[in-house]
Amino acid sequence: MKKKVKIKVSNLHEIGLLIALISVLLIFGFSTENFFTQRNFMSILRSASYVGLVAFPMTFVLITREIDISVGPAVAWSGVFFVILVKWFEFNYTFAAFIVLAWGLFLGYFIGIARTKLMIPTFITTLALWSALRGYSLFITEGRPLAISNKPFRYFFGGDVLGLPTVTWIMLMVFFIFWFLSKYTVLGTNIYAVGGNPKAARSIGLNVDKIKIITLMITSMFSALVGILFVARVSSGNSTVGEGMEFDVIAAVVVGGTALGGAVGTMTGTLLGVLFIAMISNGLIHWGIDPDLNKVVKGIIIFLAVVINSNVTFKKNSGNKEE
């Protein structure tokens, strides 16, 4: 039997990204005073963690050739909803969290059913939700934050544990779960199969619709979770949080090597992408660049990432196209 030495393309991308990540770290580290501080690293990790929690399930969504752009408003509404439940209806925190997460699952189910039964592209459904959820959050709160007072909840979920932000621990745990799912389970293989060739997957008896619905449900549930965690962080249900978060999430996933056309992507890549985006956002602030220009830079980065993805590394990797 012939033996060939091969470096998997996905690994190549991850190695490249790791090098880019370290370079960016060093550049910011040596060009600014306060970048290399523990305080700042905690800050980077914290913002990366919120993005990461949605980015891992979003990786699956993109692999199956779908997208969810309602993340930011879904996060805001989930937080507002959570506070409404505990403040206005006096639910206990655990029960309220349970309802909000269930609501997240339902939201994803709705997006999935619209996609698979009514043939409405996920981009359109989530675009509609993007507007509706933000609008309703603003309406019901009249644009004002709804404060909560529960200190243990705020200090634990909004604070630090064992030297790292609590949310970072949660994110690392979730990363591990998704990494495991993608590599070692039937569901993971099925998700890649659906992205690789949906028509084929369907013809040999895979329930393509079910898999798409599952990935969308998980993603919306994690948006809801981030909404609750944000409440702990800012001590209130706030209709304006998570603005532009869908962009950071999708940018991180794409920078991490997941193809927008589906089929290709890894959780490790997404983790690196999340850290990369968080580090760039943070470093540019340390450089004293205007936050509005920060967005321009992120725009350029996501564009370049897609160019590199589709033209260099993954040229042969995008799989056959169906729908």
């Binding site: 070692y184 293989t189 199969a193 690789g196 060739n197 028509k199 895979l206 799989g319």
Partner: peptide
């Protein structure tokens, strides 16, 4: 068109929808 998923290995394609699993604790893994 052979109904193959280009992004999976030959074995994964053969076993698609009929994967062999073993238990890892209480979780079934490939």
């Amino acid at each position: 068109d052979l109904a193959l998923c280009d992004n999976l290995t030959a074995a994964s394609n053969i076993f698609l929808t009929r994967e062999i699993t073993k238990s890892f604790g209480f979780i079934p893994i490939l």
